[in-house]
């Protein structure tokens, strides 16, 4: 699949935002007394900014953004519609959480718990957009959900450590520790899916695609000379060396360097991890082999 940049930004930004919110709420649960309410208000603002940026970037993916509201209507069947509902719901509940801290309304635990449920729902919806596409075997696997949650939490926790290093240094160390272990976990879970996808055997072949059972079939024409939507959308068009480069970048950027840096320089660790996760999401698209590509293997 060709990586869609607006989607790369959307999923990495809201993933980190959800992870940051989960980290904030964990701070409230474990160390509420020692933290000023401004810590939670500022954190909520950060979560909201990132979610809004993610939402804005997702709009660039649409041909008709002015009709985007329609994307909420088919929530009974479509995970994309469910995400379209869960994202604004997440923003609204984080807003409510921040406001209750700001105005000292109390009930922040109740509002926070609700927002946590929405955050996890949103993780599942985002991941299932990909996980629900059965023909993309690389995506249609529970590991997709695991990775979206773990990588979102890891980057969010790294960001929480960076944020706390400026606003609440006394807990920054603990958060950095948590980010370290979540990143290790992410390395394992993403490693599992990288390995699985690299060794997957495709179900469909050129033989099943055109229904001719002969071992030797070569495509001679694909019904267009200058390419088509099918050649643009489903092939990333990059060389194997480039793809290997992205793989290396994602391993270093999303995991190795943040692990080295997070305990000392959490902000730098977050910036590098975010860029690494962009590479990770790029690779997530590039490694998915769409069966329609069988029909677009050659032209003359």
């Amino acid at each position: 699949m060709r990586p869609a940049f607006s989607v790369l930004f959307l999923t990495t930004l809201i993933g980190a935002a959800q992870g940051l919110f989960i980290a904030l709420f964990a701070c409230e649960l474990l160390a509420a007394e020692s933290l000023p309410s401004s810590f939670f208000v500022g954190g909520s603002i950060l979560v909201l900014i990132m979610s809004v940026l993610g939402g804005i970037s997702s709009v660039f993916h649409l041909g008709h953004p002015e009709r985007a509201w329609r994307a909420m209507t088919m929530w009974r069947t479509s995970w994309l519609a469910r995400e379209g509902i869960a994202l604004p719901a997440f923003m609204a509940s984080v807003f409510a959480y921040g406001v209750s801290h700001w105005l000292g309304w109390g009930h922040t635990l109740a509002v926070g718990t609700f927002a946590i449920v929405i955050a996890i729902t949103l993780f599942v919806c985002t991941a299932m957009i990909y996980g629900a596409i059965k023909v993309l075997k690389e995506w249609a696997h529970p590991m997709t959900i695991v990775n979206f949650i773990v990588l979102g939490c890891a980057s969010g926790m790294t960001l929480a450590a960076a944020y706390a290093s400026f606003t609440a240094p006394e807990i920054a160390g603990v958060l950095a520790q948590a980010a370290f272990w979540l990143t290790i976990l992410g390395l394992i879970t993403r490693g599992v899916s990288l390995w699985r996808n690299a060794t997957l055997r495709p179900t469909s072949t050129l033989q099943t695609a055109i229904g001719i059972r002969h071992p030797h079939i070569v495509q001679k024409a694909q019904g267009s000379m200058g390419g088509s939507y099918n050649t643009r959308e489903f092939f990333h068009g990059k060389s194997p060396a480039f793809v290997r480069g992205v793989l290396l970048t994602l391993i270093l950027g999303a995991f190795v360097l943040p692990l080295v840096l997070v305990l000392m320089l959490p902000l730098l660790a977050f910036i590098i991890q975010y860029l690494g996760l962009l590479a990770e999401r790029w690779y997530f698209f590039a490694e998915a082999q769409h069966p329609q590509n069988l029909y677009y293997q050659g032209k003359s």
């Binding site: 649409l62 008709h64 009709r67 994309l80 629900a132 469909s204 769409h290 329609q292 677009y296």
Partner: peptide, 16 residues
């Protein structure tokens, strides 16, 4: 008139 151009359907169709 309803399509928002998200292309999701084309990802789900196996046949291109």
């Amino acid at each position: 008139d309803k399509c928002i151009g998200c292309k999701y359907c084309s990802w789900a169709c196996p046949y291109g």
